[in-house]
Design a protein around this nucleic acid. Structure first.
Lengths: 216, 216
DNA sequence: TAGATTGTTAATCGATTAACAATC
DNA sequence: TAGATTGTTAATCGATTAACAATC
């Protein structure tokens, strides 16, 4: 049973990230015949598959309810469904992508989105040659129309894949349109807005986190 | 003066990530005329520009030396160069990309790499139609030849942009070739190797970190 | 009953931040 | 000297992990 009225601010953000990892691990397991025959799974087995400490696994899951049985383990199917609901993946989410460059194209074509219930409703750019064309099955729209279409399409998540110097302006427009969350691929610290959640994916930071340790 | 023999394992990984942020912030500043005229910058100013607590800024920098002067601040140019050296960005790094799909293409075309001293020496794929073609100015090679070319080109960093089920195999081959660090875009927990550093960039985790909070 | 495993408490570990002496 | 600001210590905060009673 999922605990009701669980205060999200009390749950560490890293716990949510690990929940995604457990979810993927269970999904993979259920794709195998071995996994489908499994009734239950122990925190120790999840630990082996994810390289996350088993106490951590139990603690993370316990934030949301008592999913397991002592002496037995966690029922695989039920746990899988419970995590899906916790992460909100039982719902459909409407997304737009700003920027029809290489990255925007790669994201628009990314098969993982649809599978998880993310619907990319449109891509936006300011280059006239790109506007009106299709990327995969998604149409490229004029960035001028973004704010209006965010409202019309009831967009919850905006993905920023524009150059760094345009990112803040795009973010402002997304928020003005009513977007509640932003996934930002531009290498800038966006000025944030109260109540709007921003996640940054930053290639430079990741690469420099490698070169620092390579450097002797 | 940079402290010699600083034990890297004693410095939090998050500090290195923030160092990247400070570095970018200083770079941006030095691109403006206002910034170029600045002799020094205070931890408080850096804090304003990066939204990172000023005590945190001072503590992070103090791991590597005494860059500032009390009552004055940090000399902008010198600090910028010092961080560049700490992150190893004064050196050239040889990179290969495995996977010539949309993501691999986007990465190969990413301008930020060259600017920071990262040289993409080749892209690898197993599809015959792709092998021998150019992406940007980079040639696509047969994945069979990857291990050999890693040695020949003295590759330090391997980027994995192949589907999830192929990722572990590619990682094994990269490590066998002598790659020391891996940037993994495939949504799997790679089995790690002693002494090899792996950084994961995982779109699902980022998106689910948004839907969790959107979910009511 | 004996063995397995959860859920949770308490201990530990590590990172952030407040406070302040040093000093420009 | 007075004000500004660093570098660092000590306090705080928060996350991880060890330990174990509960229980299947």
């Amino acid at each position: 049973m999922i605990k009701r009225k669980q205060d999200k601010s009390k749950i560490p953000a890293v716990t949510i990230n690990r929940l995604s990892i457990y979810f993927r691990c269970l999904n993979r397991l259920l794709e195998t015949s071995e996994g489908r025959n499994l009734k239950t799974i122990s925190s120790h087995k999840i630990s082996q598959l994810t390289a996350i400490n088993s106490t951590q696994v139990r603690k993370d899951l316990a934030y949301f309810g008592e999913f397991g049985k002592r002496g037995i383990g966690y029922p695989v199917n039920h746990l899988n469904e419970a995590i899906r609901k916790i992460l909100g993946l039982d719902k459909k989410w409407n997304i737009i992508i700003a920027g029809a460059g290489n990255l925007g194209k790669a994201l628009a074509d990314y098969k993982g989105f649809k599978k998880k219930g993310f619907l990319i409703k449109g891509i936006f750019d300011n280059e006239p040659e790109k506007i009106g064309k299709n990327i995969g099955h998604i149409l490229v729209y004029n960035i001028e129309d973004m704010q209006e279409l965010i409202i019309k399409w009831n967009i919850q998540i905006g993905v920023i894949a524009v150059p760094a110097d345009a990112a803040q302006n795009i973010a402002n427009k997304m928020v003005a349109g009513g977007v509640q969350s932003i996934l930002n691929f531009a290498p800038v610290s966006l000025v944030t807005f109260p109540g709007i959640r921003i996640k940054n994916v930053d290639l430079s930071i990741e690469l420099e986190g490698l070169t620092y340790y390579l450097n002797t």
